[in-house]
Design a protein around this nucleic acid. Structure first.
Length: 824
RNA sequence: GCCGGAGUGGCGGAAUUGGUAGACGCACGGGACUUAAAAUCCCGAGGGCCCAAAGGCCCGUGCCGGUUCGACUCCGGCCUCCGGCACCA
């Protein structure tokens, strides 16, 4: 081999050897010394593993290698989130079956992972589109159905016209489909849901026990669950048998409630329409509001539209009649779909009342303020204390006022305390082919019947044509749709909805422990031994999608006694995105295929090698933040690896010398570097670890040049350098491990341990300050006393000059750090 | 509006149980090598001021104030940016 660093030669050789040795890398567990790491698994739809997206694989691999070298039994599995819309959309355009498209993408991505030198436990590989995997989605669905955690209902749901399917609320961002960007419409459809709202409190409470998750993600989940404390109040309405129930966070303002407003979708609206003389008007209003897309209806500053139904409700506190209105700003899915209007203290209610001439009655005031409702220009804050509120009068604003109101409501039977949530049930139906078929059968006699366990999996049919097709192709597959009712044996039709792909990803982390198990979904004993996942690495985009669903399904499995844990992921690391200047827009944007500013790793690997790409990616900045990609950074990384290579060539030619494990400057540098790199790598701060290694490389070179270092110290430095650099640049370092005459894989070698006696130097620089300003530096022996330092300081000309003619009033001495002389 | 996070050189960033601000890299300038260039290596550099030079002084971590011998770090009040939620009752 030539003296020059030729990345391709070295990397090809080691990638082949690692691939051959894969089986040996898969460990059996040793309890108490385990490490289970999970990269957010790639989507095959992202057919190119571009550098931006690839950062978490490189990060994950580097951490995995370091953990292995630290003697932990680690495994790093890979699963493919293989179902999804992109594959099906590609099929519609090209006619290629989604399976073929998906498998091609997986193969391509695997090649790129190998090319980057990433080690995964391929024996645990799984893909969600495999019937051996998705049958357990179906099995889980059936268990949830038995427990009423899966159910079917007709409800206004989000419909994406571009994807031609319904979406979960979590997949709607600012009124648009998070995938296609189309404005989402609201349609009344009968769909399958998971009852995630039953778990709202547990999901919320659990966040308090995740100290290793970022505040950012936890806040996002808290906001999404959106719990608010309040009360339900029942209002009797003339002509209705059932009272109308309202949710409010301010039951203490009940005396100020002057109207009720219902969502046009409220179930009582139909009755009100027939009873009042305004049936036609009401129907028209309902129609008009429902035609508005969610985007229009929730738009900020949208005009408040209302219609008086003519019905009257009774305010249980004041005994007065309140008109019942319909209002476009009342949303059917939050609370009860009905509100009580308190115009005096709520800006939205105030505007509505002003527009339609409804009365305004303040119930809070401060000591001084006398309030004239007619003079108000906006709603008043809940300032001061209650008045005009019967027995509640004089109660100051605050939690106590709410408690007083709830106690009164409960005593009188007019209402009760209640929590409100923003979170809604998880809509899992999708009107698409490429997903897990929902295991249900529609029988004209028996109704909706579950598929018996023995008939699982319900497989996707193969005889499907995709090209230019409208709607769900499953509906046109006779072989799939036509079946027999498992109960009565009569002719029946199969459910053609498939599941949201987030169902697949909600439990795959359990499946890595028994990927080929045909007997059960999860292996409870192995889960007990390995879970929770020690370290999860993923992007922030899953903060309230995947990560909320996974926490939910984990709890469901726990309640089924299949797993022991409440939280699946102990540590969560959100790597930041890589941005890059987009030549088309002139702006720095996140790297993505759709924006056309990606950097292909293939090209960079061909030019510089995988080690350079890995180094540049890790060195670019702190991994939790987003960082801008630069070509110059890659060149810098390449230069450094060349310097390492050349240094290793010189170290290789060392003459054999006597062992002299002395305390030398190089040995001190070696052990200080071990301490730094070990610490940095454990915090994912590979960028500072690289900085330490750059200093180390230069330090070893200088030690060599000096000619005075003990050969033993140089030999130690050579091996330490490749060990510490290995997680970051694995190929070059494996090569040098071997050339230095070591045997076995470096990835299986022992991570070096810093000798604390050597990691600290015998001399320290003591800073001398006068009145808090640095005026000099002294080199003293570690542990020097205050009087020794004082003597040295007085002997220093410069310091003496600063003290000259002034009175020393105080000295502050921090051993090994500083001496501060306070003078007057 | 509510909640969370962040503001440090030309740039990416380093340093926080309060103790030398700017490690490491990029870009830049100078030098060595070379016929020359590239590549490589070495040196320099926060801003301002004094000095022939050696060297020295002042200012400086978004802004204002506080605590302290000493503040990027702690406290109070602001400003800006990023992210989440929001006609949510």
């Amino acid at each position: 081999m030539s003296g020059k660093y030729v990345a391709s030669e070295i990397e090809g050789k080691w990638q082949k050897r690692w691939a051959d040795a894969q089986v040996a890398f898969v460990d059996t567990a040793v309890p108490g010394n385990e490490f289970y790491m999970l990269n957010m698994y790639p989507y095959p739809s992202g057919s190119r593993l571009h550098v931006g997206h690839g950062r978490n694989y490189i990060l994950g691999d580097a951490l995995y290698r370091r953990e292995r070298m630290s003697g932990r039994k680690a495994f790093n599995p890979m699963g493919w989130d293989a179902f999804g819309l992109p594959a099906e959309n590609a099929a519609i355009q090209s006619g290629v079956h989604p399976r073929e498209y998906t498998m091609g993408n997986i193969a391509r991505m695997k090649e790129q992972l190998f090319a980057l030198g990433c080690l995964y436990d391929w024996s645990k590989e799984l893909a969600s589109c495999d019937p051996a995997y998705y049958r357990w989605n179906q099995w889980l669905f059936l268990r949830m159905w038995e427990r009423s955690l899966a159910y079917r209902k007709t409800a206004p749901v989000n419909w994406c016209p571009g994807c031609r399917t319904v979406l979960a609320n979590e997949q709607v961002v600012d009124g648009r489909c998070e995938r296609s960007g189309d404005a989402v419409e609201i349609r009344d459809l009968t769909q399958w849901f998971f009852r995630v709202t039953d778990y709202a409190d547990r999901l919320l409470e659990g966040l308090d026990h995740l100290p290793h998750w970022s505040e950012r993600v936890k806040t996002m989940q808290r906001n999404w669950i959106g719990r608010s404390e309040g009360a339900e109040i029942f209002f009797r309405v003339d002509g209705l048998i059932e009272p109308i129930t309202v949710f409010t966070t301010r039951p203490d303002t009940l005396y100020g409630a002057t109207f009720l407003a219902l969502a046009p979708e409220h179930p009582a609206v139909a009755l009100l329409a027939t009873r009042s003389g305004r049936g036609r008007e009401i129907e028209e209003f309902v129609e008009r509001v429902r035609r508005e897309s969610r985007l229009e209806r929730e738009a900020e500053g949208g005009e408040k539209e209302g219609l008086d139904t003519g019905a009257l409700a009774l305010n249980p506190a004041t005994g007065r009649a309140m008109p019942v209105w319909l209002a476009n700003f009342v949303l059917p899915e939050y609370g009860t779909g009905a509100i009580m209007g308190v115009p005096a203290h709520d800006q939205r209610d105030f505007e509505f009342a002003r527009k339609y001439g409804l009365s305004i009655e303040p119930v809070y005031r401060t000591e001084v303020a006398e309030i004239d409702p007619a003079a108000m220009t906006e709603a008043r804050p809940h300032d001061g204390y209650l008045y005009r509120s019967g027995s509640w009068d004089g109660t100051p604003n605050g939690p106590e006022a709410v408690r007083v109101a709830i106690r009164w409501l409960e005593e009188k039977g007019f209402g009760k305390g209640k929590m409100g949530y923003r979170l809604r049930d998880w809509l899992i139906s999708r009107q698409r082919y490429w997903g897990t078929p929902i295991p249900a059968i529609h029988c004209p006699v028996c109704g909706v019947v579950p598929v018996p366990d023995a008939d699982l999996p319900v497989r996707l049919p193969e005889d499907v044509d995709f090209r230019g097709v409208e709607g769900n192709p499953l509906e046109r597959s006779e072989a799939f749709v036509n079946t027999r009712c498992p109960k009565c044996g009569g002719a029946a039709r199969r459910e053609t909805d498939t599941m949201d792909t987030f169902v697949d990803s909600s439990w795959y982390y359990f499946r890595f422990l028994n990927p080929r198990d045909a007997e059960r979904m999860v292996d409870t004993a192995r889960v007990k031994r390995w879970l929770p996942v020690d370290q999860y690495i993923g992007g922030i985009e899953h903060a309230i999608l995947h990560l909320l669903y996974a926490r939910f399904i984990c709890r469901v499995l726990r309640d089924m006694d299949l797993v022991h844990l409440e939280e699946p992921f102990e540590r969560l690391f959100n790597q930041g995105m890589i941005t890059r200047l987009n030549p088309a827009t002139g702006k720095t944007e996140k790297m993505s295929k759709s924006r056309g500013n990606t950097v292909s790793p293939d090209e960079l690997i061909a030019r510089f090698g995988a080690d350079t790409v890995r180094l540049a990616t890790l060195f670019i900045g702190p991994p939790e933040k987003e960082s801008e990609w630069s070509e110059e950074g890659v060149a810098g990384a390449f230069r450094f690896l060349n310097r390492v290579h050349e240094l290793c060539l010189r170290l290789q030619e060392l003459p054999a010398g006597p062992d002299a494990p002395a305390d030398t400057p190089l040995r001190r540098l070696t052990h200080r570097t071990i301490a730094r790199v070990t610490q940095d790598a454990s915090e994912f701060h590979f960028h500072t670890a690289v900085a330490a290694l750059m200093e180390y490389q230069r330090g070893i070179g200088e030690a060599l040049d000096s000619g005075s270092e003990a050969p033993a110290a140089l030999r130690e430095a050579a091996r330490t350098l490749v060990k510490l650099l290995h997680p970051i640049a694995p190929h070059l370092t494996e090569e040098w491990w071997q050339r230095f005459g070591e045997t076995g894989f470096l990835v299986e070698a022992v991570w070096p341990v810093a000798d604390p006696a050597l990691a600290t130097s015998p001399d320290v620089t003591l800073v001398v300050q006068v009145n808090g300003k640095v005026r000099g530096r002294l080199s003293v022996a570690r542990g020097a006393s205050e009087s020794e330092a004082m003597a040295l300081a007085r002997a220093d000309e410069r310091i003496a000059a600063w003290m000259d003619g002034r009175e020393l009033t105080r000295t502050v001495f921090v051993p090994d750090r500083l001496l501060n002389l306070v003078v007057r």
